[in-house]
Design a protein around this nucleic acid. Sequence first.
DNA 1: CGGACTGTTGATCAAGGTCAACCTCTGTGG
DNA 2: CCACAGAGGTTGACCTTGATCAACAGTCCG
Lengths: 255, 255
Amino acid sequence: MERDSAGGRWPLLARLAQFIEPADADLAALRVLCGAPQQASPGTQLAAEGAARQAAILVHEGWAMRHRSLPDGRRQIIDFVLPGDFCDPSVFVSRRSDSTVTSITPVRYSAVSQVSLLDAVLHSPRLGVYLWWLEAQESALLRAHLFAVGRMRAIERVAYLVWELWGRLSLLQHEPPVAFEIPVSQEMLADTTGLSVVHVCRTLGQLQRERVIERRGHVYRVLDPERLRKLAQVNEDHHWPEPMPARIRRALEQV
Amino acid sequence: MERDSAGGRWPLLARLAQFIEPADADLAALRVLCGAPQQASPGTQLAAEGAARQAAILVHEGWAMRHRSLPDGRRQIIDFVLPGDFCDPSVFVSRRSDSTVTSITPVRYSAVSQVSLLDAVLHSPRLGVYLWWLEAQESALLRAHLFAVGRMRAIERVAYLVWELWGRLSLLQHEPPVAFEIPVSQEMLADTTGLSVVHVCRTLGQLQRERVIERRGHVYRVLDPERLRKLAQVNEDHHWPEPMPARIRRALEQV
DNA sequence: CGGACTGTTGATCAAGGTCAACCTCTGTGG
DNA sequence: CCACAGAGGTTGACCTTGATCAACAGTCCG
């Protein structure tokens, strides 16, 4: 596995590997783009709603969340940013960010300026395709999340969230972890699912009583993956990360 | 305004114009990509959840919706596809579609095969950036929609929806329309906002009684834009379509 | 003229929200 | 080493928003 100067893993490569083995030139370009990683302690705002955007953020390690708030305190967590996630590469689209990104745990990340990112993409279209692919995955998650929040009952929403995070964590390793940490308070779970803290608590309790999951603190364990999947209303057949179709691969290689 | 072979307008250009005046070469490439437009009558599935993806769809005229359903009948409308929308250009990401796209009105569209699209992007990175920009706008809408469904009360959600559609329609013309058609049944509004049909009906009634909007059938009129904006919890300052920063423009021109 | 579909209104119900008390950690300072 | 504070988690009692059920009206269309 690739390691950067600080000796940490590059989960981005694990992500991309689901799709393609990037060419060396592209890897080099990526590495140049990222530069030296930075460190943020929990609760740091990596991007702020309404503020000018400065850079895209590639997370190497740790959890963050993207959220939007209302003056009266209501908050919606849009998604969680995990290692290997490129947090809005399309910075150049609008000057102001529509949401805030806050670290949850200590986060090690690289900030990539909009200009250098765009430059890189313009000169290496393949790199652009990789980023495109990452972003497309993210919007697929967003659509699923919207579906859950809009049309699923409390227990299904919570089940879906656990399922999603379990799946995303699995992608970073070679197989699904037996026990995994979700370093997220129940208040955050509530703001993710559109429920109240109290109800999230009860719902988690129910999932445990029914032996679908087990949990101690923030460490979760899926006891009955099949029931969890059904509760989460996830279709048996569509596991999201698919290898790239051969036709596409050929097209990419020809550039 | 540009017209295609069938004499119709190209709303995609109106969309892009918010961002950039595309170079002639890019326009030509786009036109080649699209080929002859096709026609779909209302209720046609342009893409089906779980089915193999064939092509990206560029809508020239008419409304469609992207939605996901559950066997028990629950349905969430993810977003509306309006003229000028490129409906998943990132087809190549996964073989199977995660949602269904159905036309609401008669729709005139071009289907662009994944291979030729990818090819075009690989050979004209600028084109890729345009598509990227379009897609980034779409995910911004998605995030806002998620926020509304997750954390806003019924009246705010409906207000937000009207606001969003009003805004998107405004982009296709030169200024906000006084009266505009939203060719969408109340059932669809319900499935968009995550409410029940009955409650959407009551909520629309309330918006009318309070003289925020007026409505006859599917024709809407915003009486009090300021109140609508506040109800929709939209920030005064962030109108989404912004012209491209000069730095970015320069980068694009250098390729 | 009858049926299907959409919209409207009223009556009732339930999922989940709110409020409040309490508990369990963990960290901190006396 | 203990007292205390503060955050997060848990549980119970009660309430509200919006869902559900049902009846009916308008409209379009064969």
